[in-house]
């Protein structure tokens, strides 16, 4: 039987990337900043969103990505802002969000008054980094309790992001963790990465985060 080899040279994630690019363009036209927050489970993303909601109010919206439950969306909604929950499925559900999920969410969101949309990606430092969701800024949240070595262990998340938020800094006095080592490791993986240190408990460092959002 005759065989034929065809040259393809096509990105495997090209469908995801195409939708992501369309989303980015559409949101840019509407002057809405879209930020993708990635981290391990329990790094403090939702608490950061709660405090951020007190600053930006109804100008912001949060898309919550979880395998199961609407707990995070319920928490953030209490701050009086728009939220949208994506559940990827309890049994064998996806461990990351793809741009198709985000596109569906965007169709449900009322955008008229919005200036910022956040997506809290699924708590996982590996898979989410692989998939462009159409954000203008990818940010990694790394809590000080996770240890100094995480940037080296999960380099793609740190390489594919422009900002790292080091969270839970109020716990530093109780830990054998040197925040300078965390920052050195971030620099090793992504020398251009911007770093903001904050504590959602005390509020320390939040002004830098708000300033970042206002100038982005």
């Amino acid at each position: 039987m005759d065989k034929k080899e065809v040259k393809v040279m096509q990105k495997i994630l090209n469908m995801n990337d195409k939708i992501a690019e369309e989303l980015r363009e559409e949101l840019s036209k509407k002057n809405i900043l879209f930020i993708n927050l990635m981290s391990s489970p329990g790094s403090g993303k939702t608490t950061i969103m709660e405090r951020t909601a007190h600053e930006f109010g109804t100008k912001m919206c949060v898309i919550e990505g979880d395998i199961q439950t609407t707990l995070d969306a319920e928490r953030v909604a209490k701050a009086g802002i728009q939220t949208y929950q994506i559940n990827t499925g309890p049994f064998g559900g996806d461990c990351h969000l793809e741009s198709g999920w985000i596109k569906s969410a965007m169709e449900e969101i009322e955008m008229a008054d919005l200036e910022i949309i956040f997506v809290e990606n699924i708590g996982n430092l590996v898979c989410p980094a692989e998939f462009d969701v159409g954000a203008h800024v990818n940010a990694v949240v790394l809590s000080v309790t996770e240890g100094e070595d995480k940037p080296l262990k999960y380099p793609l998340a740190f390489q594919n992001s422009q900002l790292c938020i080091i969270s839970k800094t109020d716990l530093l006095p109780y830990l054998d963790i040197d925040i300078n080592v965390i920052k050195e490791n971030i620099k090793k993986v992504n020398p251009k990465m911007e770093v903001i240190e904050l504590s959602a408990k005390s509020g320390e460092g939040f002004q830098s985060w708000f300033d970042f959002l206002k100038r982005s």
Partner: peptide, 21 residues
């Protein structure tokens, strides 16, 4: 120096496909 950039290592593509006509 940390003034560096990645040249290769992020590839993720289909190069060729072979099949019967």
């Amino acid at each position: 120096s940390f003034e560096t950039e990645l040249i290769t290592g992020k590839e993720l593509y289909i190069a060729t496909m072979e099949g019967t006509k």
